[in-house]
């Protein structure tokens, strides 16, 4: 238990950031009109692909003969990039459709 409290104590800044950003996220999209629900979901889905940064760091830190890490990290980069690139591209297509209307 003490170990957990110590961990929280050592990460006070992170916890503060966490709380502030939760409120920021609430506020940023709180006035979204119903027609934008799906494009916003798609756009924020692309942003959730930010997890790809972790895969890049993992590959950069893997020894060049650690094939398991490299393979899984590389797979992670491919999947994450599909999420990021595909997500933004498909959001763009959806929003273009809105313009024509």
């Amino acid at each position: 238990m003490l170990e957990i409290l110590d961990y929280l104590k050592d990460n006070v800044l992170t916890i503060n950031l966490w709380i502030i950003t939760i409120y920021l996220g609430f506020e940023v999209i709180s006035k979204v009109p119903t027609v934008l629900h799906t494009p916003l979901m798609s756009g924020s889905n692309a942003i959730s692909g930010i997890v790809i940064i972790g895969a890049i760091i993992l590959v950069r830190q893997s020894a060049s003969d650690d094939y398991l890490s490299l393979a899984i990290g590389g797979l992670g980069i491919i999947l994450g990039t599909i999420n990021v690139v595909g997500g933004h591209a498909v959001t763009n297509r959806m929003l273009e459709m809105f313009k024509k209307k």
């Binding site: 950031l17 966490w18 950003t21 939760i22 409120y23 920021l24 996220g25 609430f26 940023v28 999209i29 709180s30 979204v32 629900h37 916003l40 979901m41 924020s44 889905n45 942003i47 959730s48 930010i50």
Partner: peptide, 10 residues
């Protein structure tokens, strides 16, 4: 976190 919280509200 931004996606987590805005996604929840959405």
């Amino acid at each position: 976190i931004l996606v987590g919280s805005s996604g929840t509200i959405l």
